[in-house]
């Protein structure tokens, strides 16, 4: 068959990676630069500011710490779901993936409590550059979490049919989805101390 695209399930003999893995890493490289632009804005605005508040004085550190734990836990369940597929255990995969999706949702719920508390006190992004960058960065991160939940939920339910057709391709997809999910975690690992603890 001449019209088949190669290296979808099996790695390229020279590069050692599949198309999807290289593709998702390229995408993450782009994401690094996206958040790079925002972090650059943060550094520049804070550097030029005379009265930047301490995050721990105006934001809810306990809730954010809880959220950090939630996201870290979801990262480990994500990688365990992939490991289950490598062990050919679809049931365990389903379990871990379901937990990952639920933890993602929990993150959003906790985050919405934080936002709601701020809105109740009439604190909006327009209040100051601090809140502007806080809402923008956590909001964009939240959108990434939503995207990840959608992808993970897809692979939990309809997307898992692929397992019976091509288990290796499916495992590769979960690895790619995992890379994205860990990246979302990784962004939060920096956002949390920079916004909340300094």
């Amino acid at each position: 068959m001449s019209s088949e695209i190669r290296y979808i399930s099996h790695p390229h003999p020279v590069t050692g990676v599949t198309n999807s893995k290289l593709g998702v890493w390229c995408f993450l490289a782009s994401e690094i630069m996206l958040f790079g632009g925002l972090f650059s804005a943060l550094v520049m605005l804070r550097g030029g500011s005379t009265n930047w508040p301490h995050g721990f004085e105006v934001l809810n550190v306990p809730l954010a710490t809880l959220n950090t734990m939630v996201l870290i836990t979801s990262s480990v369940t994500m990688v365990l779901s992939w490991a289950s597929l490598v062990r050919k255990d679809l049931g365990k995969y389903r379990l871990y993936m379901a937990v990952t999706v639920l933890l993602g949702l929990a993150f959003l719920v906790i985050k919405s409590f934080e936002y709601g508390y701020k809105f109740e006190h009439h604190i909006y992004p327009s209040k100051s550059t601090f809140y502007a960058i806080y809402f923008t960065m956590t909001g964009l991160h939240g959108l990434h979490v939503i995207g990840g939940i959608i992808v993970n939920a897809y692979f939990l339910l309809p997307g898992s049919k692929l397992w019976h057709k091509d288990p290796e391709q499916f495992t590769g997809r979960i690895e790619a989805a995992g890379l994205y999910w860990h990246f979302v975690d990784l962004v939060w690992i920096f956002l949390f101390p920079i916004l909340y603890l300094l």
Partner: peptide, 22 residues
């Protein structure tokens, strides 16, 4: 190179829609 412009567009959108002051 494009993602920093995406970031900038998000910031300008916030300035215009949410009245921030980036």
């Amino acid at each position: 190179a494009f993602p920093p412009l995406m970031a900038a567009s998000v910031l300008q959108l916030m300035d215009r829609v949410a009245h921030t002051s980036f």
